[in-house]
Simulated scan of single mutants.
Amino acid sequence: MWGRMRKSFAGLVNTARSENDHDRDRRGHNLFEAAAAYVSACAEDDQDQIDEAAGWVSPEALSFGVSELACRAVIALARERDESPQTVARALLGLPAA
């Protein structure tokens, strides 16, 4: 009995996932999804994923998304390290302290 319930539930979950994937494909990607995929692909040096993510939105939108992601990342690291965003940004770029 539990096996049948588990299979039914798994089928329901898989159907919902495929519908969500289909909805996302139909509506397209937003700039933050594109930026997250692009930056993570750059970090992993995955050229195929970089090219794919770059095609999801316009270059201007991707640039804005990457910039917003950078700002949020620096702020999060600054809070985590209890340092200023400027100190963190300079350290990430290998620049001397200002």
Rank of each mutant, 00 (worst) to 15 (best):
C71T: 15
V66D: 04
L31W: 03
N30G: 03
D48N: 05
G55V: 08
L77Y: 02
F9H: 11
A76R: 14
E80D: 07
E33W: 12
H22Q: 14
P85D: 06
T87W: 05
R81G: 04
A89I: 02
A89F: 00
I75N: 15
R17I: 00
Q86P: 07
D46F: 04
T15G: 00
N14I: 02
Y38P: 01
A35Q: 03
L62C: 07
L69Q: 09
R26P: 01
Q49N: 15
N30E: 07
A78W: 03
V39K: 08
I50C: 12
E83D: 09
Q49M: 15
S8V: 05
A53L: 04
D25P: 00
T15K: 06
A61M: 14
V66Y: 00
W56I: 06
R27A: 13
L12Y: 10
L12W: 09
A10Y: 02
S18L: 01
E44N: 08
S18H: 00
E44L: 11
V74Y: 06
G65S: 00
D51M: 02
S84M: 10
S84D: 08
A54W: 05
D51E: 10
L31Q: 00
D51G: 03
W56A: 07
A43P: 09
T15E: 01
D48H: 07
A76Y: 07
V39Q: 10
D82S: 13
A61T: 12
D25S: 13
D51N: 06
V13L: 08
Q86T: 14
E52C: 10
V88W: 02
T15M: 00
A89D: 06
V13R: 10
A61G: 12
E19F: 04
S67C: 13
A73T: 09
Y38G: 04
F64M: 14
T15S: 02
Y38H: 09
S84G: 08
L31V: 05
H22I: 00
R79G: 14
S67R: 15
D45E: 15
A36H: 13
R81S: 09
A70P: 00
G28Y: 01
V57I: 06
N30F: 04
H22D: 14
V74G: 00
S8I: 07
A36S: 15
E68M: 11
V39G: 09
G55H: 03
A53E: 02
A43V: 11
H22W: 12
Q49L: 15
N20R: 08
F32T: 14
D51R: 06
D46W: 05
E60W: 12
Q47S: 10
A53V: 03
D48R: 07
A37K: 03
S18T: 03
G65I: 02
A78T: 08
Q49G: 11
E52T: 13
G65E: 02
E60T: 14
S8L: 10
S63N: 15
A73Q: 09
F9G: 02
Q86W: 07
A16T: 05
Q86K: 12
D23F: 10
A54F: 01
S8G: 07
D82N: 13
G28Q: 02
